[in-house]
Structure formats: structure tokens, C-alpha cells
């Protein structure tokens, strides 16, 4: 399987540590293009830290010491302007957190800060498209002036997805996107992630084994900052690796 599918991100010997703790301990992992790459693992195993290192959000935290290489489309991410990189690799956080502004302005945020002058109708079109791709436009009934924070939790999460989608990233990372949502809202995100992989590469961090079963192409298990299972499809659930068996028992 690996030979046929293109790698979009290659992580090599990635090590992230603070003064007192090794958080990621020499991670080697490939992220495959136009696939759902799922990362599962117990809480505190370093999943969020891994996502943050991929878009260099970790650079903001001076207490984090990062070494090793991450190649994004064969370029080392340290050679890419972080602002540029973050537009290419979008991140949707665990807790939905729209900015306290209208739905429209939320989605427009990423476009406006680029400093490029977009024509009004061009901007409108992109925002509509993003909201449609995030499966939100219908529920809003065309009212994009309403406050982003007044939406329901599930809608807020999809608004955050639209906000990332409007930038047309190549990779979209989700950090436990369903953990704060009710079952119906969860279901919508599942459908959405499935649809998104047609156009985007998805990296999905989750605790939710149901979600993993439904959407994952490659499932990777991280355990105390190291991957103990990598690049497996549905055979992940039949794995004989001890940590995987333990994790699956715990998760169910």
C-alpha cells in the first residue's frame, strides 16, 4: 500500500522536550496524501504536541526544545515561513472556539490577514464555498451576520473547520474534533471528514475508536512519545502488539 500512495509529510527522528520531560521521543512517521491519517493514543502521550510541531506552533513556546526533521512536500519545515506553513497545514482545535465576531468575519479572518486585496464578491464566494464544504451553510439559512459564538457546539466546530478550509490548506489537522460534541454533532463531523479527504490530506487525532473505524485509512498509535504501531489500516484492530491491545481494551 505504502508504495502507491504519495507521502506529503515525512517526520524523521522528531524529538520534543522540555527541561524536565521528553514529550516526543524520536518520532518517525509518514503522512499520506489524500488519506485520513489517524493518530490515537492515551491522554498525555504527545498527540497534540505532534500536531503543533507540524505547523510550528510549538515555536511560540520557548520552553519546548525541538529537534529532528519534518519534511512537508520534501521541504524541511524550518525552511518554510511559519505563516506560510500554517496556511498550508491547517489545525482545528479540540474545543470549538470561534472568534467573537460574525460567522462571515470568522471565516474571512484568515483571508483578511493575508494582506492580499480580495474583491468583495470574490471573498463572498470563497466564504460561501468554505461554509458549504464544512456542511454549515444550510443550517445557517444564509444568515452569515449572526455571531459565531451563538451557534451550537457542533456548528461552532464546523465553523472552525470552514475557517481553516477557506485558506485551501493542503493538510488539515484535527485535534480530537468530536470529544466536546454530542452524538449527532459527532456524526456530522464523521461524514465531513470522509468528504474532506477527496480534496485534502487529513490528520486526525482522536480517542474515539468508532470514529477511527469509520474514517481512518492509516491508524498510528502513539505511546509515551513513541509510535508503537504505524500505517495500518483496519488490521490495526486485529493487531497483536501489546500496547495496541491494551489501548483498544481501555478505549472500548
Amino acid at each position: 500500500m505504502e508504495e502507491k500512495v504519495e507521502k506529503i509529510i515525512e517526520i524523521e527522528r522528531l524529538k520534543v522536550e522540555t527541561k524536565n520531560k521528553v514529550i516526543l521521543d524520536g518520532v518517525d512517521l509518514n503522512i499520506f496524501k489524500n488519506c485520513v491519517n489517524t493518530i490515537v493514543g492515551p491522554s498525555g502521550s504527545g498527540k497534540s504536541t505532534l500536531l503543533r510541531s507540524l505547523n510550528r506552533l510549538l515555536d511560540m513556546d520557548p520552553s519546548m526544545d525541538v529537534s529532528g526533521d519534518v519534511l512537508f512536500e520534501k521541504r524541511n519545515i524550518v525552511d518554510i515561513d511559519p505563516v506560510e506553513l500554517r496556511r498550508e497545514i491547517g489545525l482545528v482545535f479540540q474545543k470549538p472556539n470561534p472568534f467573537p465576531m460574525s460567522v462571515y468575519d470568522n471565516v474571512a479572518f484568515g483571508l483578511r490577514i493575508q494582506g492580499k486585496k480580495l474583491k468583495k464578491d470574490e471573498m463572498d464566494k470563497m466564504i460561501h464555498q468554505a461554509l458549504e464544504d464544512a456542511d454549515l451553510i444550510e443550517e445557517l439559512g444564509g444568515n452569515l451576520k449572526q455571531g459565531g459564538t451563538s451557534l451550537s457546539g457542533g456548528q461552532q466546530q464546523r465553523l472552525c473547520i470552514a475557517r481553516a478550509l477557506v485558506l485551501r490548506p493542503k493538510v488539515l489537522m484535527f485535534d480530537e474534533p468530536t470529544s466536546a460534541l454530542d452524538p449527532i454533532a459527532k456524526g456530522k463531523i464523521v461524514d465531513l471528514i470522509r468528504a474532506l479527504k477527496q480534496k485534502y490530506t487529513v490528520i486526525l487525532v482522536t480517542h474515539d475508536m468508532n470514529l477511527t473505524r469509520k474514517v481512518s485509512d492509516y491508524t498510528n498509535l502513539i505511546y509515551e512519545g513513541k509510535f508503537v504501531a504505524k500505517g495500518t489500516g483496519s488490521e490495526f484492530f486485529e493487531s497483536e502488539i501489546e500496547e495496541v491491545r491494551d489501548f483498544l481494551t481501555e478505549a472500548d
Binding site: G90, L91, F99, R112, I113
Partner: peptide
Amino acid sequence: IPKEQIENAYALGADDIRVASRI
């Protein structure tokens, strides 16, 4: 201001000046 909002702005490609002026 919630820390997540600041991080989100950076994650959407805002630089320091944009985060200051827009958030």
C-alpha cells in the same frame, strides 16, 4: 482573552502584528 483564540489566530497564519491588531 482565551488562550485558544490566540493560538487559533496563529494557526490561521496570523503574524504577531495581526494577532495584536485583530485579536
